[in-house]
Simulated assay, not measured.
Amino acid sequence: MKMYVGIDVAKDTLAVALPQTTTNWKVRSIRNTPEAIRKLINELPDQSHVVLEATGSYSVLLTYLLCQAQVAVSVINPKQSHHFAQLQLAVTKTDESDAVLLARYGQLVQPPCYTMESDVLLRLKQKRTLLRHFKKQQRSLANLQHAFSPLPVQDERVASSLQQLISHFQTAIAEVTAEIDQLTTQHFPDQLRRLTSIQGISTTIATALIEVTSGFAQFHSAKALAKYIGVVPVIYQSGKSQITKGICKTGDPHLRSLLYMASWSAIRYNKPCQALYQRLKAAGKAPKVALIAVVNKLLRQAFAVVKFKQDFDPDYQPVLRSFPCFLT
């Protein structure tokens, strides 16, 4: 019988709720370090199933070591535990109570097991995050340089320092971009080639899709992929009223912006996307609404070429068929 263990993750500590009976847990706190986590893993009961929240970098070490030790683990969205706490009418929020809440969530909901990303994908995520920060810093410095340019009296030392920093970030951006391209080409050559065969999807977008989706490994439908990235409409219906509240925006905002920009290219060069855009515009849809529909079309095309292992064919006629499961 599975025994659900709830772990609330903080920067320096982990609150662990170990089951004593089906309704009681013993809660203790340990350090969020490799040594303490390995000791905890050795002390876990047989058939333990750990439940924790996704808390960015702080939870990755714990998840990584649990998966290495082949301990069943579920990583849930913090929104899920928050709404579960509201369902339980919880009025207390501490690390200890959150750990017990996660254990109870595991018992009642029995969430699916999490599959840890490969070391290559973990490195790719870090490099893409670093690249975004480099570009942000470069834009900030370039804006500052532009703001100083009309001043009647300019400090040469300031101008020189700004130019040196901008040049430094340009070099760093080029180096990190080359490393990302090398990693993707080396470890995901087929996916990269098939994704870039779609008109509108560049190498940058293809690399971002591979990184964000873990190589499309955990998705069984294009709709689930679009929801994960955050481009599906939010529909509110009650009685006679039905309101569409834009898109859900649940995923990576940087990837969403890249896909939105890609839709402008797709409506010019991608025949199915062009036909969809023109049809929606003729039906009276707003341009942005039609472009978001094109983004969804691009994601369906990306999902199809990766899942069915075929290059993009703009004249392809869809047929009903099953696709292989990546989790086997």
Rank of each mutant, 00 (worst) to 15 (best):
Leu255Gln: 10
Lys26His: 13
Val231Ser: 01
His254Asp: 11
His254Asn: 11
Ile198Val: 10
Ile235Gly: 09
Ser118Tyr: 12
Arg31Ala: 11
Pro272Asp: 05
Gly6Asp: 15
Ser202Cys: 05
Lys93Gly: 02
Gly251Ile: 12
Arg132Trp: 14
Asn42Tyr: 05
Leu65Ile: 03
Lys240Ala: 04
Leu183Asp: 02
Ser160Pro: 10
Ala283Val: 07
Tyr269Ile: 07
Pro112Lys: 01
Arg38Val: 13
Gln68Asn: 06
Phe188Trp: 15
Arg31Gln: 07
Lys245Leu: 15
Ile7Pro: 14
Gln137Arg: 14
Asp46Ser: 11
Ala90Ser: 00
Tyr236Glu: 05
Thr203Lys: 01
Thr244Lys: 09
Asp155Trp: 13
Ser59Gln: 13
Ala85Pro: 00
Val100Ile: 08
Cys113Trp: 15
Asp119Asn: 05
Ile210Glu: 01
Ile30Leu: 14
Gln145Ser: 05
Leu144Met: 11
Arg193Thr: 04
Ser74Lys: 00
Ile235Arg: 10
Trp264His: 02
Gln47Trp: 13
His187Ala: 03
Val319Arg: 14
Gln154Tyr: 12
Gln186Ile: 06
Pro45Gly: 14
Ala15Tyr: 09
Leu195Thr: 09
Leu122Asp: 06
Ile180Asn: 00
Leu327Ile: 14
Gln20Asp: 15
Asp12Gly: 12
Ser160Gly: 14
Ala178Lys: 04
Ala142Glu: 12
Thr184Asp: 08
Phe326Ile: 09
Thr177Cys: 13
Thr55Gln: 06
Ala217Val: 15
Ser238Arg: 07
Cys113Met: 14
Gln317Gly: 02
Lys79Leu: 06
Thr129Asp: 12
Pro152Gln: 12
Phe303Lys: 00
His146Asp: 09
Ser97Pro: 00
Lys26Ala: 00
Tyr269Gln: 10
Lys309Asp: 09
Tyr58Ile: 14
Lys2Ile: 00
Ser214Lys: 08
Ile7Met: 03
Gly239Phe: 15
Asp98Cys: 05
Pro45Cys: 13
Cys67Trp: 10
Ile247Tyr: 09
Gly106Leu: 06
Val295Glu: 04
Gln137Trp: 11
Gln317Met: 13
Thr92Pro: 01
Ala174Tyr: 13
Leu124Trp: 00
Gln237Gly: 02
Ile201Ser: 09
Thr196Ser: 01
Arg300Gln: 12
His187Thr: 02
Ala206Phe: 04
Lys227Tyr: 03
Val306His: 04
Phe219Ser: 03
Ala282Tyr: 10
Phe169Pro: 04
Asp315Gly: 12
Ile292Val: 11
His187Trp: 09
Ser257Cys: 01
Val71Gln: 08
Ala224Pro: 05
Ala103Val: 14
Asp311Thr: 06
Gly230Ala: 03
Tyr316Lys: 05
Leu66Phe: 07
Ala266Arg: 11
Ser149Lys: 13
Gln317Ala: 01
Ile243Lys: 10
Ala147Met: 09
Gln80Leu: 07
Ile247Asp: 13
Thr22Asp: 09
Ala217Asn: 12
Thr244Cys: 05
Arg300Thr: 03
Pro253Cys: 04
Ile166Asp: 10
Val73Glu: 06
Asn270Asp: 05
Cys325Asp: 08
Gln68Thr: 08
His220Ser: 02
Pro314Asp: 08
Tyr277Met: 08
Ser167Val: 02
His49Lys: 12
Asn32Lys: 15
Gln191Lys: 01
Val153Glu: 08
Ala290Leu: 11
Glu96Pro: 07
Asn77Trp: 11
Gly230Cys: 11
Gln182Ser: 14
Gln310Met: 08
Tyr64Gln: 02
Leu61Ser: 06
Asp95Tyr: 07
Pro324Thr: 00
